[in-house]
Amino acid sequence: MALTREQVENIAHLARLELEPAEIPRFQQNLSSIVEFIGELERAETAGIAPMAHPLPGLTQRLRPDVVSEPDERELYQKNAPQVAAGLYLVPKVIE
């Protein structure tokens, strides 16, 4: 199944990726061949088979006691931040 240019642009937007106009045909071709490849799955008979989200059967979620264990490490954690002011992470102004 071939993906249209518009589909590729839409997917890129959902994933917040900016594709150069010149790159789009290549991604369009790559993604189309990948989609065709995974389309093979259609052949499998899966009626009555439950989806398997985890590789180990029977494991269930463990619970953590409600205890505060993390101290304030803002200074350390913000060392990797590209832009901060007054302890806040900065982004271009958002209009709600």
Binding site: V68, E70, R74, Y77, Q78, Y89
Partner: peptide, 24 residues
């Protein structure tokens, strides 16, 4: 709760910005 849903950071209101945001 005292701590967050998926981490051990405190949930108190009104702390200094990002002082209660742990790695998770």
């Amino acid at each position: 709760t005292r701590s967050k849903i998926f981490s051990g950071a405190p949930t108190a209101y009104g702390a200094a910005p990002n002082s209660q945001a742990c790695l998770v």
